[in-house]
């Protein structure tokens, strides 16, 4: 038996259904009907999937798409960058945070030249400001940190 990402994903799915069923038990009968109607069979299906995953032979469980050291590192970096995008955009908004994080990604993650990074950041600013604020007249999020400061 090998515990890996495949089994963890099945367990997370199972936890989501079981959690929903438990939360539904506190609801009025009519409101709980549909969550239980869907949640119980969903949980059973996921439980079945967990059993299938656990019973798979170790060779199959170690499928090619499972983490190798290098891929695990790339994956961690990808998630780190996603977190940085979230911090930049939620913290500093689209107009400030957007170009800055695009610049940082192109320069430091992709390893492009400063010139390319600046070009990408300028393009992002032009798209966000020109297209969404000037042309479509939308109000873009200013960022929690910037709003608190300004």
């Amino acid at each position: 038996m090998t515990f890996n990402g495949r089994i963890a994903t099945s367990l997370v799915m199972l936890a989501l259904f079981v959690g929903a069923c438990f939360l539904a038990l506190d609801l009025p009968k009519k409101a709980a009907f549909m969550p239980l109607l869907i949640g119980v069979p969903g949980a059973l299906l996921c439980l079945w999937q967990v059993v299938i995953d656990l019973r798979r032979s170790p060779d199959i469980a170690e499928a090619p798409e499972d983490n190798t050291g290098e891929e695990g590192q790339s994956e961690a970096q990808a998630f780190l960058w996603l977190g940085l995008f979230a911090v930049a955009l939620i913290g500093f908004g689209f107009i400030v945070g957007g170009p800055v994080i695009v610049f940082a990604f192109v320069r430091f993650s992709s390893g492009e030249s400063w010139k390319s990074a600046l070009f990408a950041a300028t393009g992002t600013f032009a798209l966000l400001y020109g297209m969404f604020i000037l042309l479509l007249e939308l109000t873009l999020f200013r960022g929690l940190i910037l709003e608190a400061i300004l």
Partner: peptide, 12 residues
């Protein structure tokens, strides 16, 4: 590498 940041910003 050049597509990823634009797509993520647009998704947000």
């Amino acid at each position: 590498a050049l597509l990823i940041p634009f797509v993520i910003v647009l998704a947000f």
